[in-house]
Design a protein around this nucleic acid. Structure first.
Lengths: 211, 211
DNA sequence: TAGATTGTTAATCGATTAACAATC
DNA sequence: TAGATTGTTAATCGATTAACAATC
């Protein structure tokens, strides 16, 4: 009923599918097509849209261009969002170097690391000493941070982010961050997801059937 | 009621928290402690355990060692699981080089790429040409694969994995993979998660309150 | 014993889906 | 028009939580 996280994630999925439809030359879609592309029921598609006041044509489906415009606006794609990353291990480096965010309106402004050897002010994006995090975040009005440090350091980094005014965090560390009421936290854990896949593969082999 | 994906992910979280408790010298935990560490209610912890026939002591909580043994067994930690990765972009490279999987019983056996320039048979793990995927997977009895290629190539890679006998896939590409009934697919999408954080940060700023 | 914690049932909560009137 | 699709309500489904008897 309410707008929840899964619902917003679906908007991202719709958006992605619509971009692909458009690049294939399509001009309109039906809830049926979109649901199929994204893996949800047509009813879910229409429900999601109605929650955001997006409406189509009773018979003609939805105009892709109009729909994308609405979704872009909802997802804040009409401006560039700057993000910082703390931790410069393998995952952090991968995200720092990833070029795909830029065309989605997400700019990794800088990386931060506690290890002076990792600091590189000339890089693009630059890698700065962790001590400068707060100052940098405040100076640049950054509201979103990515935590990609070992579990032992994650809470400390989170506290620093909060005190710097960060309001949203994407956390790759395998711990529950405790913190402010007014900061949203999303967690990604590759190991857990992989463990999960492995569990079901094992379970299927034992029981002989899909879960 | 039933055992679902979220439930299994929680088992991974409990396991992680328990390892930390143990390394701090604790011997037993209560559902209260565990729930707090992981961010769920004590009732949820007990419910999860009872689904897997794990029981504690009516007054004494749970013995950490025994509990870990049970969770390890459920999650298949008593053997090493070999995994292949296809795609050698930034994320794939990060996972290939990540040392943390090994101590959790997950071994990245090899990477595969379509680009001959990326091939490196001497590396550990080796990076092999994509054509060799099927042969390698069959020869090594591998059941789990990670897809970290661009969206345009993902379905094709998935098809190859299926024909090679892979039964579980962790997919980083932003599309819905269509495939076999007897293959489990988990999706990770960093961009969607980040977009989601950004959405809520914006929403909070506009409405002034947490979602 | 009294107090505390488990294990489980029943109640609640929330999200998804089915169904259908409206309508193009 | 007849057929198809939307938008929305009501029903269903499933997961979480509250509550409490059992018991250590």
């Amino acid at each position: 009923m309410n707008i929840n996280k899964q619902c917003i994630i679906r908007l991202s999925r719709y958006r992605n599918a619509l971009n692909r439809f458009r690049s294939l030359g399509f001009v309109k879609v039906f809830s049926d097509n979109l649901g199929d592309a994204v893996g949800v029921t047509p009813a879910q598609v229409r429900k999601d849209f109605s929650l955001f006041g997006i409406s189509g044509n009773k018979k003609g489906g939805y105009q892709i261009d109009q729909l994308l415009e609405k979704l872009n606006s909802i997802l804040g794609k009409d401006e560039v969002h700057k993000v910082v990353i703390v931790g410069c291990g393998h995952i952090a480096s991968a995200l720092l170097r990833y070029k795909g965010f830029e065309k989605e309106g997400i700019r990794i402004a800088a990386g931060f690391d506690i290890d002076p050897a990792k600091v590189n002010r000339a890089a693009a994006p630059p890698v700065l000493p962790l001590e400068e995090l707060k100052e940098y975040v405040k100076a640049n009005g950054i509201k979103t941070g990515i935590i990609a440090v070992p579990d032992i350091a994650a809470q400390q980094v989170h506290d620093m982010m909060l005190s710097a005014g960060i309001k949203g965090v994407l956390n790759f560390a395998p711990i529950r961050l405790k913190g402010a009421e007014d900061c949203i936290i999303n967690n990604i854990n590759v190991e857990y997801e992989l463990e999960n896949v492995i569990y079901y593969v094992n379970a299927m082999q034992k029981t002989g059937r899909k879960p």
